[in-house]
Each structure stands twice: as C-alpha cells, then as structure tokens.
C-alpha cells in the first residue's frame, strides 16, 4: 500500500518537476555557466574565462552607475510607494468624518487609483515621456499655466532630475495596486479595535501607528519584497522613456539595461550573464532580508 502511494506521489510530482527543471532551473544553471565564459551569442564555442567577467564588472563605469541607480531606486521606490499606498488605504477606510468610515466615494477612488495597474508598462512609459516633454508636455505646460514657469525643466534630460522622474513613474504606476492590497488587509481588521481606539481618545495618527500598521505589517513586508524586485529591474521604463536610453550620461542606467545592451548590442552574452547572475543574487538578498529582517511575534485577532 505504502509502495503504491509513493509511486502515485512521484507520478504526480514528476511532470511539474521536469517542467520546472527544464524551463526554470536549467536556464539558471546555463546562465551561471555562461557567466564564466566569453560566449558571443552566435559562436558555436564558448571559452571558459573563470571569474574574469565578474572582475570586469568592477571596472565598468556604466555598470557601477547602474548599481548606484538601482540602489537609490531600491530605497526610494518601495518606501515612497508603501507610504502613499498606506496613506490612501487609510484615508479610504478611516478618512470619513466619524473616523470610522472611509471618505465619500471610496469605491470610486479605489477603481481610479487602480487604473495605472491596468496599463502595460510600455504604455505608461510612452505616456509619461509625453508628460515630461520639455516644450509641450503636460507637466511643464501646467507649471507655466499656473505661473510657475521657472520650475519647468527638461525633466528627462537633466542628470540630477532624470532618475527622480523615472522613479516617480514607477511609483505612480504601482501605488494603486498596493493601495488595494493594504485596503484588503485593513478590511480584515475588526471594527471594534477602531471603536475602542476612538473611545480611548486616539487621534488619526495614533490609530494608524498603534492599530492599523501592526495589523497590516505582513502585507507591508510582502510589498517590500515585490517593490524591491521591481526597483532592481526598472528596465522597461528606462529603456523606453529615458535619453540614450539610460542617460543622460548614465544618470538613469539600470542593471537590466546594461545587461541587455551587452548581450544584444555588443554580443557579449558571457559578460551579460555575469550581470544577470549578480542581479539574481542581489534580488535574492533583498527578498531574504525583507522577509527575515524583522521577525516579530504575530498578533492574533479574534
């Protein structure tokens, strides 16, 4: 009997495992191997070069720019997105006059804030490129319209503004999703807790800090992982929207873009694979840190 069960379990697992190994693990393994070679992408042979590709990464000024930019994005994008997401979700839940309901039109706002999530990233990038257009873009046009023409900039072409402009787009496009995520988490918080807090005389900020935040902490942590991974990517937006792309002069370079350029423009697949492997370990490290960082005891509700 036990024998038959084992066979059944193995039989059920095998197809999935084989597919996983073939389409997930094997490409990873190949990328690891290729990162140690000088494969050009078309040649039949690849010569083993040891860790040479990794040593080069340290001298590649553009790659170092990319690392710096991804690091900035890693700090700014999740923090800002989660802060705005939490704020909007709280307002939708408790922003009403009594302090226990959402603002009027909550359902409508939820849908509207979620809209950017429905657009493909490519469309988002193209739309924002129009918004940032220095001569007839919406942003400069609005600034000039309200008499703040002095604040108008060539957003994507000035090195100290370009990365911020890119990050603003990433935040804009993802905030709706996290608002919905946090909203769902807040829905699960019993109302009695808020009523009790209200009776105890807690203000909005105290209620948020002492009641809401501890109870959605798990969701915030998951959001950090997702946003961290998104911040380490950024390829599509940068590739479509920025000057160069990746410019001006490396100001918006990201690892993914360096990787793509080296593989498909320069024909250095081995070197590009080394970048990919580096990115893989960075992403893994971010995910592990975010998930293990703060192991607080779980709060039990009900």
């Amino acid at each position: 009997m036990r024998h038959g069960k084992l066979r059944f379990v193995a039989g059920a697992l095998a197809p999935a495992l084989v597919l996983h190994a073939l389409f997930v693990l094997s490409p990873y393994a190949q990328a690891f191997y290729l990162s140690l070679t000088d494969w050009t992408g078309v040649a039949g042979g690849a010569h083993f070069v040891g860790l040479g590709n990794y040593a080069r990464l340290g001298e590649d000024a553009l790659f170092l720019d990319a690392l710096r930019n991804n690091a900035v994005m890693l700090i700014v994008v999740p923090t800002v997105t989660i802060a705005i997401g939490l704020f909007l979700a709280s307002v939708l839940h408790l922003g009403g006059r009594r302090g226990l309901d959402g603002v009027r039109g909550t359902a409508f706002y939820k849908v509207v804030y979620f809209f950017p999530q429905l657009l493909s990233l490519a469309i988002v990038a193209v739309l924002w490129q129009f918004v940032y257009n220095p001569t007839n873009g919406l942003l400069n046009g609005s600034l000039r319209g309200i008499g703040l023409g002095g604040l108008a900039h060539s957003w994507l072409a000035e090195p100290h503004l370009a990365l911020a402009a890119v990050m603003a787009v990433i935040v804009w496009s993802s905030v709706g999703f996290y608002m919905v995520l946090f909203s769902a988490a807040m829905d699960a918080i019993p109302r009695e807790l808020y009523e009790a807090a209200l009776i105890d005389g807690a203000g909005a900020w105290a209620t948020f800090r002492k009641v809401t935040l501890p109870l959605v902490r798990d969701n915030v942590r998951v959001a950090f992982v997702y946003l961290g991974i998104a911040a380490l990517d950024g390829f599509a937006i940068v590739q479509i929207m920025t000057v160069g792309p990746g410019g001006p002069d490396g100001a918006t370079e990201v690892i993914g873009l360096s990787l793509y350029r080296n593989a498909f423009t320069y024909g250095k697949f081995g070197y590009a694979s080394a970048m990919g492997v580096t990115l893989f370990f960075l992403t893994l490290a971010v995910a592990l840190l975010a998930l293990r960082g703060r192991r607080t005891e779980r709060l039990e509700i009900a």
Partner: peptide
C-alpha cells in the same frame, strides 16, 4: 532533477554546434 536535466543542458543547449 537538477543533475539529470541541467548537466546535459549545460553543455548541450546553448553553445552546441561546432563543425
């Protein structure tokens, strides 16, 4: 699974060819 699938793939898939 890794050993069985990845190992031949390593030498086989990407850089096959030759003369």
């Amino acid at each position: 699974a890794l050993a069985g699938v990845a190992a031949p793939a390593l030498v086989g898939c990407v850089t096959s060819g030759g003369d």
